[in-house]
Design a protein around this nucleic acid. Sequence first.
RNA 1: GCGGGUGUAGCUCAGUGGUAGAGCGUCACGUUGCCAACGUGAAUGUCGUGGGUUCAAGUCCCAUCACCCGCUCCA
Length: 581
Amino acid sequence: MAETAFMDKLTALCKRRGFIYQSSEIYGGIGGFWDYGPLGVELKRNIKDLWWRDMVTNPPNGADGHEVEMVGVDCSIIMNPKVWEASGHATGFADPMVDCRQCKARFRADKIWQLLVLQEEATEAFFKAREFERDNPGSKVNTEAGLLLAVGAEADGAAEVMSRAQSLIRSEAKKRNVAPLKRASVTDVKRKALFAVAESDNDESTGYLGVLARPVQVALEIQVCPNCQSVGTLTEPRAFNLMFQTYVGAVQDDSAKAYLRPETAQGIFVNFKNVLDTTRVKVPFGIAQVGKSFRNEINPRNYTFRSREFEQMEIEFFCHAADSMKWYEFWRKVRFDWYVNLGLKSEKLRLRDQGPEELAHYSKACADIEYLFPFSDEHQELEGVAHRGNYDLTQHAKHSGKDLTYFDDEAWERDKANFGGDKAKEKTAKNAEPYRFLPTVIEPSAGADRATLAFLCEAYTEDQAPDENGVMQTRVLMKFHPKLAPIKVAVFPLVKKEGMPDIAQAIYRDLKQHMTAFYDDKGAVGRRYRRQDEVGTPFCITVDGDTLKDGTVTIRDRDTLAQVRIHKDAVRDWLRERLGR
RNA sequence: GCGGGUGUAGCUCAGUGGUAGAGCGUCACGUUGCCAACGUGAAUGUCGUGGGUUCAAGUCCCAUCACCCGCUCCA
């Protein structure tokens, strides 16, 4: 793919200029973890800071035309493990899962075995094997011979099931135009399957995963979806939890097990009541959080795009169900525009509404903000804006036993006269909609590292610029939006004499109090410009002979190479105007 | 997770079983008069890691780790 060369050049630049390093590099690295270098940390922090400023400190006016009320939290990464039971992360994905590509059904891999066409027979054989063990004390049915012996008695019934499975597989394979199964006969498969079941039951040394792995493997070899009966459409099982496990306290037993959070959102939900009780916010309002999350990705890849440790920028926006679609539309647009305004070109950036089949059962709508990265032919998710209903608060209310409902004082004060002073009626009405309710949540959840990578990809540019002889040369530059640029301004003396360095340094010392600034007096000025181009510094200020006479300096634009000349005392305001601060 | 590929200086890469290399970059000094390739000089490597074969391994073999590509996957 031609774009591989692009990523190679970008990753080389990121390393060379200190944007991104591989984690633990001198020890050979570690898969799925990355470090930000001196320039990378500035870039990423600019992204996070701007997000916070634009979404929390000073968000745009809301769907109702009023100012949007936003507050922040910063929650611990390790939480009570019950949080993950409530959220579904611990239970839903602790088991190996298998998906059908055809009908999108998902099965627990250990259950799929029971659902398959050979179900009855296998179960039967399994119990036969158990009986055999019981009737023959001291023996273990953990050999193929022993199992076949156990199955032997049921040979007649087995033949029927087998031929049914065989013909089903053949016809499905033909219908879907997929390659027929490679094995000689289903008998073989069946034998292996039965063996695997017995073995997994007897062998505890392989543990939970080992026990499941074999029957699952066999089930996959048979390749019939229990739901839609398609052949060859099942994925391999994802046979482990994506949660990072750890232990709290020095004793590492099961009671001390805990997890590094796989998302920052749950910290917000868990603190929903705290924020309500302590900050005078009123629905609708949002809680924001920026922080690290951890997922044991099966296959981290594509540079920093899918890392095992990553940073999220999440908002949970709480509103009344009746207004929720308005707010959903609001955030969907606000978040998309945010990327555009910071320089992601709209032809590579896409706002994609998820189809009904993609939505979680509790979700009314979800839109992904996706970017066409150079390493992929398809758009990849930067951020998801999800309408989550009141699922999360419901779950936490249920699991914690705490009341997480919201009471709308204003609406009640407005309406309570309608109940004519009937205390019983009032009491009933107060504790129901629309006065007391579990807020609906709109969740814009962005990946800080993914955004950083997208801005890096977008910024990388090669163009032609003249050298000192007027010959065009390839120039590499990072066209960061000035607000994102790691270094805002570089200050140079044109040459290192006649007092130019002193003036330049004075300018530099003034500027660095207000923005990231860089001073350089080494080598030809053209070379210094190019060095700044490569790290995306939008403006370079040069002190020259005229400065000595009239106090003016040149400001050179990274993208156009154009220069303007202004008085050195006006430089700071000139820059701040263009940096939006 | 499977298959294929790569791993040598900060970056890009040469390197036939026999002394560790180039270009760019970096640093120092000189030069400098607005867009990288002027001069002189300098630093830089357990050749990804660990074993093995060999008199001798960057080179051959095995294992392992990381990255890239394809499939797979991505709440």
